[in-house]
Design a binder for these strands. Sequence first.
DNA 1: TCCTTTATAGTCCAAAAAAGACGGTCTAAC
DNA 2: GTTAGACCGTCTTTTTTGGACTATAAAGGA
Lengths: 169, 169
Amino acid sequence: MSSEIRLTPTSFIVLGLLEAAGEATPYELKQVVAASLADFWSIQHAQLYSEPERLAQAGYLSERREEGGRRRRHYKVTAAGRQALRSWLEKPTAELTELRDPGLLKLFFGANPKALAGAQVPVHQRKLAGYEKLLAEMGAAAPAGMRLSLESGIGHEREWVRFWSQLVE
Amino acid sequence: MSSEIRLTPTSFIVLGLLEAAGEATPYELKQVVAASLADFWSIQHAQLYSEPERLAQAGYLSERREEGGRRRRHYKVTAAGRQALRSWLEKPTAELTELRDPGLLKLFFGANPKALAGAQVPVHQRKLAGYEKLLAEMGAAAPAGMRLSLESGIGHEREWVRFWSQLVE
DNA sequence: TCCTTTATAGTCCAAAAAAGACGGTCTAAC
DNA sequence: GTTAGACCGTCTTTTTTGGACTATAAAGGA
């Protein structure tokens, strides 16, 4: 164990999800990501296989492999992993957002605003509606962080709808 | 020329900037990026050296190399390049934004909202102020797309300030 | 003139991530 | 039994990131 590795956002996503889940297979992580995180931090499914392996090698996760059948790997956060996650969480970051909006990029380079807006408005509206539905369904039991990041997403989607709508007319 | 390559957002950034500039060296592209695009689509400076090379090989750019001194490479968009850029610009995209905010990620995983907000509010305020200054200074001559994407950035920064501020108290 | 500093300009490499093709395994319904 | 479809995992290639490192030119001082 414990070859030192660089801990990236991907690492913390895996650590964070596993800490919440207790124990999980990459496939299960994949489901969770799709249901929650994917909306604001996309991640390749293959990485949910390779990253836990990497983390396990460095001692942040423990691995249990099924004997028969699919020989699935089940991962669990170790003390070292928990420690790393904690100290990451505790250090408030001043880093700024990365936006990466393909539509905005085209706009920047002179694409027709109206045409672009026509394509963007409906998708953002749908997204917004989806978020709001999710928020409404979210019980009081849901973790605060989850609700807050969802609310942030809603704020930004509103902004997108406002922005593109104004370009439509 | 003309081994086929995949055109990525990076490719279109280079094509778009070069089309606007007429002719430029990677270093000049680097300056332009830093002054405009970097705020909403970060790009590694090394890529501004490798990507033009790739594009030139595929026939989208022409290259002229200085004889003496630094032997700088100057790139220019070819007809094929212009064509590729055009057709990319014309096709309105329905792709969604990627957000990638490290702070939001921490929030999601349960970091202390107040502490995070304390770090985030000032940087977003600074960013917002910077954008607004830029917009104010931007002459009427500036391309519409540039102004619009700046305005979009302002909208999102306002939203960030609003969001994090509300978590401070 | 020569030297030093600072800005300018470019290269390189290892690690990580993206994109997406591909291949197995299980189950349940026919 | 077999087969469709869902479940689950691996692999390869290309791109991107992060950041160290080097070199050239210009400007100002000794």
